[in-house]
């Protein structure tokens, strides 16, 4: 495949702590093609943000990549040192985080932040950069962009700030955007606006997007493929419609059945017993087995199969056996 933008192979992230070496990301593989959106879902602590941060090379020490490969447009980036990685990050990877204020400098007008980023990564003149900054703000739907470039981040509402961050992430025309819960802090109506914006930009420019969220609804409406993570491992990976309507991993099946919509009012919700284990107390074998309705001896003894990017869908010895 030539249009693969991001390819992650057997990525493992380790954190040495006093409870032992934790593995918030364990042998994870995934791929995103040009113009596609990959949704990454999972419970809190499943390792979604760790995966995203590993890809953009911004893991907080002591967390570090201890194995696997990350390829961006056919170039390996996990082995890059700080400076070249910084260049890749600005130019080829854009970032959008949950809290827009973490990506904006509170002391600089937003226009300056945009032009600065462009001048650093694109070969253009200052006046051209300013023109493009205005265009970028217009594109993300900031009214009166020509005047607003002089405004500071705190003069915008939460939704508007997130638009500015998206403009900032996209201004150097990256081929990949990693968006970590970009709409979690926003209201439904604003969320709908932001999602529509991301989808449009992705389609128009052919940008690949890694969309991290815990909201299955957002994934369903936005993503082309979905990766379901559980306790640091890939549980299920596949086209969004297949995974959501005919999940084969017992965890995904339970998850889909426990969403209130599935019960259609009044009826009891299907519940998965227990909670995701902490990384310090992962059970032997498959991490999901204590909560799994179809767990067998093999699941308690052997770790679940590792899912390669092109392999089957579910990392489960008995995938699909519980019926959809």
């Amino acid at each position: 495949m030539t249009d693969t933008v991001l390819k992650v192979v057997n990525l493992t992230v380790k954190i040495p702590t006093r409870q032992g070496v934790l593995r918030p990301v364990d042998k994870l593989s995934l791929e995103i093609a040009k113009g596609k959106i990959l949704g990454v879902v999972g419970e809190s602590g499943a390792g979604k943000s760790m995966t995203g941060n590993a890809v953009i090379g911004l893991l907080d020490p002591p967390a570090h990549i201890s194995g696997g490969e990350i390829w961006l447009n056919g170039k390996r980036i996990d082995t890059l040192t700080r400076e070249p990685m910084r260049a890749v990050r600005g130019k080829q990877i854009g970032m959008v985080f949950q809290d827009p204020l973490t990506s904006l400098n509170p002391l600089l007008p937003i226009g300056d932040q945009l032009t600065e980023t462009m001048l650093e990564h694109l070969d253009i003149s200052a006046s051209e950069a300013e023109k493009r900054a205005i265009a970028a703000l217009e594109e993300v739907g900031i009214p009166g962009a020509a005047e607003r470039i002089k405004s500071y981040p705190h003069e915008f509402s939460g939704g508007m700030r997130q638009r500015v961050v998206i403009a900032l992430a996209l201004c150097a025309e990256p081929s990949l955007v990693v968006a970590d819960e970009p709409t979690t802090a926003l209201d439904v109506s604003v969320q709908a606006q932001i999602i529509a914006l991301l989808k449009r930009l992705c389609a128009e420019r052919g940008t690949a997007i890694m969309l991290i969220t815990h909201d299955m609804g957002v994934i369903a409406e936005t993503a082309d493929d979905v990766a379901v993570m559980y306790a640091g491992r890939m549980a299920e990976l596949g086209p969004v419609r297949d995974v959501l309507t005919r999940p084969t991993h017992p965890y995904t099946q339970g998850l889909m059945a426990s969403t209130p919509l599935a019960a259609k009012g009044g009826k009891r919700l299907n519940q998965i017993p227990g909670a995701m284990p902490r990384l310090t107390e992962l059970p032997a074998g498959c991490a999901f087995h204590p909560r799994c309705p179809i767990a067998k001896d093999k699941c308690r003894a052997d770790p679940a199969p590792t899912l390669g990017a092109g392999d089957g869908r579910a990392a489960c010895w008995f995938a699909g056996e519980a019926g959809p």
Partner: peptide, 24 residues
């Protein structure tokens, strides 16, 4: 109506919603 329309749907694969206007 707008709230119901804007809420993400589990079966809304590839749904194109007209994004709501303005903010609170």
């Amino acid at each position: 109506k707008m709230l119901l329309e804007a809420a993400p749907k589990l079966d809304g694969f590839g749904r194109e919603v007209e994004p709501p206007k303005g903010e609170i």
